[in-house]
């Protein structure tokens, strides 16, 4: 049994959690202040979670291996960092338009996991059991110049963060530039890049608005990849049944509470940016249309299908796309 430094109480089980994002942001706050306390509560104090944020234990590049090998018991895994090993998760990026409410987004994640078995198989292959799913705030377009709509990114140097975004930007007519994430702040300030397309919470946490004072927020354009909070399967299987139940219960409660956090985080961030003198616009249908262009999406999806078949053994890749189309449509219809 492990001793806790504050009270000297004895916990039966101590679990390590690793998250590469720094504390104090929307998601990490939620994990630290909602999910973990709930786990400790629902397991009647049998479980203590030692959370490590900011990549202090495992960085975004290390977490997959570290979680699989059991360096950490629980982890936050962001599929965008593993475009090949979590290839199936890239499928969400092929459906840029999504519902705005968390309940509908989470239904999309739930249904896709049920209908597309490869999603869970990829995590199982890494010895991971997915518990909680969260998501980043939707897409923001931050420019260091005045923009009224997406048409204003044409001909400008924009930073793209994934191959799918690169293709979209090219298609629209911007010059995609690859600047490392940690150089984006300075690059916006000095003008190496004119703008950055990213998730709104990351944009806020990295203070990009200090250099990109003109932004378009697109709640309809979700950040697509699920932030997946997992537990090592060996660790999970060794847990007593009542503890497993407690963790699942806690996760269910937390999962539901994330909706409020998500909605208010979007509002608060917009408010904070307006207060900081940022010119905030909301994306309209025309802006969204640039990203849902049929030719563009067909190209992206065909690329995904080809690779899914050739490299990842997903023979029914077309089916995957069709299922996702239906799932997304159902989600959109609910709004």
């Amino acid at each position: 049994s492990t001793t806790n430094e504050e009270g000297g109480e004895d916990f039966e089980i101590t679990l390590t959690y690793s998250d590469h994002d720094p504390p104090g942001a929307m998601r990490t706050d939620f994990v630290e202040n909602v999910w973990i306390p709930e786990i400790e509560k629902q397991t009647n104090g049998q479980v203590k979670v030692n959370a490590n944020f900011g990549g202090s234990l495992l960085s975004s590049q290390e977490v997959l291996e570290g979680a699989a090998d059991g360096v950490t018991d629980m982890a936050m895994i962001f599929p965008d960092f593993y475009p090949e090993r979590l290839f199936t998760y890239q499928i969400y990026k092929l459906f840029p338009e999504a519902p705005e409410k968390w309940e509908n987004i989470s239904t999309i994640f739930e249904e896709s996991v049920e209908e597309l078995p490869k999603l869970n198989e990829e995590l199982e292959a890494l010895n991971q059991k997915p518990l909680l799913v969260t998501v980043g705030l939707p897409t923001v377009f931050g420019a260091s110049y005045e923009i009224d709509g997406i048409e204003d990114i044409i001909g400008k140097d924009w930073r793209a963060s994934s191959r799918w975004h690169l293709e979209s930007m090219k298609h629209i007519g911007a010059n995609p530039v690859s600047v490392p994430w940690e150089d984006v702040y300075m690059s916006l300030e000095t003008g190496v890049i004119d703008g950055v397309m990213t998730n709104y919470d990351g944009f806020h946490a990295m203070k990009f608005y200090e250099g990109a004072q003109d932004i378009i927020v697109g709640p309809q354009l979700w950040w697509a990849s699920p932030f997946t909070h997992t537990i090592n399967l060996d660790v999970w299987n060794d847990l007593p049944e009542d503890v497993q139940e407690g963790i699942l219960k806690a996760t269910e409660i937390a999962q539901e509470k994330f909706g409020e956090v998500y909605a208010s985080a979007l509002e608060n961030t917009i408010e904070a940016h307006e207060e900081a003198g940022v010119n905030v616009k909301m994306a309209d249908e025309e802006d969204v249309a640039y990203f849902t262009d049929e030719e563009l999406l067909n190209n992206l999806r065909n690329t995904w299908i080809e690779e899914a078949k050739a490299n990842h053994g997903i023979e029914d890749a077309e089916e995957y796309i069709n299922s996702m189309l239906e799932i997304m449509q159902r989600g959109l219809d609910k709004e």
């Binding site: 960085s59 590049q61 290390e62 090998d69 150089d183």
Partner: peptide, 20 residues
Amino acid sequence: IERAISLLMGAAFSSIAAPS
């Protein structure tokens, strides 16, 4: 030992793999 290797190899790679 296995997890010691895992942690070491993670750091061996990612501590240099930052573009800056």
